[in-house]
Simulated scan of single mutants.
Amino acid sequence: MGDDNIIVQKPLSELIADQLKKDIWSESIKFGDRLLETDLAEHFDVSRSTIREAFKILETEELIVSKARKGTYVADFTEQDLNEIIELRTLIESQAFKKAMPKLDEQQLEKLKKITEQMKIKADEHDWNGLFDLDMEFHSFVVNLCGNARIVRIYNSLQVQIRTFLMHLDQYYSSPQSFYREHEELLQTLISKDKDAVVKRVSNHIEYVEEKLLGVNDENRVNAN
């Protein structure tokens, strides 16, 4: 049997950690909620030690926090977190997209077109979670082509934080279609092979939320006065 036929099965603790991430991203579990080992062990029909291993994974990814003598909680995602993720994504992705452009051949552009087409379907269905998953797929696909292993490694280590950041974006876009259209425009810019235009488009795409966030904050300050 060839290596291609080997199915790699994740450890049970990783599968549970993955499910808990999805529950947080879908808001079935809220920020700040307490996670009880006993309840989760019963829910998933596993040992408490398996749940503890899943907690360690999520804690490493900064999705949960353990508080001494208080228990384990889903981490809050603050305005500061939003700003830091925006800054990191802008720095990493603008450089990575520029470096990836010469490596984007017809087959790879076709892959991005298919992702974008799927985004349109999800936008029409008003499925924000589906859109955000496809956003991750789109951006990760390009970053992984950049040819800089360290950039790829750092970006991959931020995947959970970025995906958690994305679940906040629906409040900043007028509709799912506007979010999809940004990716369609980004795809067309990648097809153009214009590096300067790509850097500008990537930065605008990511920093759009920062502008909206600052606008909301300014409005709140005015109203408070």
Rank of each mutant, 00 (worst) to 15 (best):
D81Q: 01
Q95L: 12
T116S: 08
L109P: 02
S26I: 10
G2A: 13
Q171M: 11
L186V: 00
F31W: 08
M1Y: 10
H126S: 11
R201D: 04
I57A: 06
A68D: 13
N144Y: 07
N83Q: 13
K99R: 13
K200I: 10
N144W: 01
T90R: 14
N204M: 09
Y172T: 03
D196V: 11
N204I: 01
A54K: 05
M119Q: 11
F77G: 01
L112H: 03
T189M: 07
E37H: 09
R48Y: 01
I162K: 12
L187Q: 00
K10P: 01
R163K: 15
I85L: 04
E93R: 11
R163T: 10
V199C: 04
L131R: 00
T78S: 15
E137M: 12
S140E: 12
E84Q: 12
R52S: 08
Q107Y: 11
Q161W: 06
W25Q: 06
I24D: 05
M101G: 01
D33F: 10
Q177T: 09
K113G: 05
V202D: 02
S157A: 15
V222Y: 14
Q80A: 12
V74M: 05
I151P: 00
D18Y: 07
S178E: 14
C146K: 05
A123G: 02
I191A: 06
M119P: 00
G130H: 03
D81G: 04
K195L: 12
L158P: 01
P11L: 08
E59Q: 15
A96L: 02
K212M: 10
K111Y: 14
K21R: 15
N223M: 15
T50P: 05
G71M: 03
Q188P: 04
T72R: 12
K30D: 13
Q19W: 07
L187V: 02
R34F: 11
S28G: 12
L158T: 15
L58P: 00
F141E: 08
I16M: 04
